[in-house]
Simulated scan of single mutants.
Amino acid sequence: MTLVASASMGLESVVKDECVDLGFENVTTFNGRVEFEGAAKEIVAANIHLRCADRVYIKMAEFKALTFEDLFQNIKKIAWEEIIPINGEFPVSWVSSVKSKLFSKSDIQKIVKKAMVERLKNSYNIDVFPEDGPVYKIKIQAHNDIFIIMLDTSGEALHKRGYRNLINEAPLKETMAAALVKLSRWKGGELPLIDPMCGTGTIAIEAAMIARNVAPGVNRNFVSEGWDIIPSDLWIDVRDEAFSAEDYDKEVTIFASDLDEETIEIAKLNAKKAGVDEDITFSCQNFLHLETDAPKGAIITNPPYGDRLLDDDAVERLYGLMGDIFRMRFPKWSYYVITAFEKFEDAFGKKATKNRKLYNGGIKCYYYQYYGAK
């Protein structure tokens, strides 16, 4: 099968690297998604191991459709019965249409559902489907009249690892936090990591999970665990392999702090639930008091910015102080900062080694990367 790992804009190459590292074959990158080939085992492995993808899908078809009749006939051609059982629930749950002649989402939903029912009627020789069994959600993406038809194997989005109980008012998705750490190339060992504005601890927790090689989906469930096409023992085997691969011998030093005491308490609870509380030292302090004896390391942080918590003047003052403190007290460290504030480099007082456009919760951001001493 062709499988699809969807990704936030800007993270496609990170997800591609993850897929290659997992040994997936024929990995190809497109806007907002990474495609690869696989069978049941790859569906399971992708859901359990991918840190930066949003969801994992089975790609059922890709075709051009200019009329609703084109759409109906192409959907009807798909061998739905090979995956969806007679009692399967198959909602057309998500439709997107951009620059296409067929633009009415509700009409696309109705036509797709009707065509699926016609196909399954012929396969199962019944007229009414109970839809009281396992769930098979269909996602439709149309762009320039090209339709991609997918089945969601994940259910809840992959960023829902299961460790985050409460969220502060401007959360960073777990998948994005993991990507920030991946892009920094920090993997633990002798180099410490600091997040001086940690909120509920997502960056620190994802960093600890990466350093310890804890699979992000190992402790949660997926909608496709109830599907007949995936043997149940496969989920057990892949989880067992993931647990066996965890590394608790490596040195891991992570410091995370925030101004708000209640937020820090939530961060501690989250870290404990994720099983990495012993790797992270949390403290309630102003980043102005940030200090370290370590000569080198990485600072990765998601500070407040304009659309999020502070006005522009306050943001400029904050970033100016950040630049001064980082350069004076951490001269050989690397710094990684994600923000939507486009004048960040001016306020920070230094041009980044490189920056990358990312979308955090639909907000256009840049990830400013300052490389320290090698």
Rank of each mutant, 00 (worst) to 15 (best):
D277S: 12
F24P: 01
E345N: 06
A179L: 03
R239C: 10
D127T: 12
T339H: 08
P91T: 10
A46D: 01
N165L: 15
V56E: 02
E206A: 03
I138G: 07
E35S: 06
E278W: 02
T28W: 06
I148F: 02
P295W: 05
L193D: 03
T29H: 02
G323N: 13
P192F: 07
K332D: 12
F103L: 07
D132W: 01
I210C: 01
D258P: 05
K101E: 13
Y371W: 11
R356C: 02
I254R: 00
D152S: 04
L158D: 03
K41G: 14
I75M: 15
M322W: 03
I338T: 12
M116A: 10
E42G: 04
N302F: 00
E246S: 09
S6V: 09
P231E: 15
S184Y: 00
T175K: 05
N221G: 09
R239W: 06
G297C: 11
L50Y: 02
C19W: 08
I229G: 02
I75C: 14
R329F: 13
L151A: 03
F68I: 07
A204Q: 05
M197G: 02
F72I: 14
I254K: 00
K357E: 14
E342I: 09
I86K: 13
E69S: 14
F341M: 13
A211M: 04
I138M: 10
K41T: 11
S6A: 10
D249I: 05
Y124M: 08
E345T: 11
M150H: 03
A271Y: 04
I203S: 01
I149R: 12
A39P: 01
N221T: 14
N31S: 10
N47T: 10
F68C: 08
R220S: 07
T202Y: 01
D54Y: 02
A208K: 00
I254V: 05
N270Y: 12
S154I: 08
Y305H: 05
Y370H: 09
L290Y: 04
I236H: 11
G23Q: 10
T263E: 05
N168V: 06
S334P: 08
D127V: 05
S13Y: 09
G133K: 07
C198G: 07
E345F: 12
A207C: 07
V181N: 01
A177G: 04
I108D: 03
V15L: 08
D293R: 03
K343T: 12
E251C: 06
I210D: 00
D127W: 11
Q109F: 15
Y359R: 10
D54C: 03
D313G: 13
S184N: 04
P85F: 08
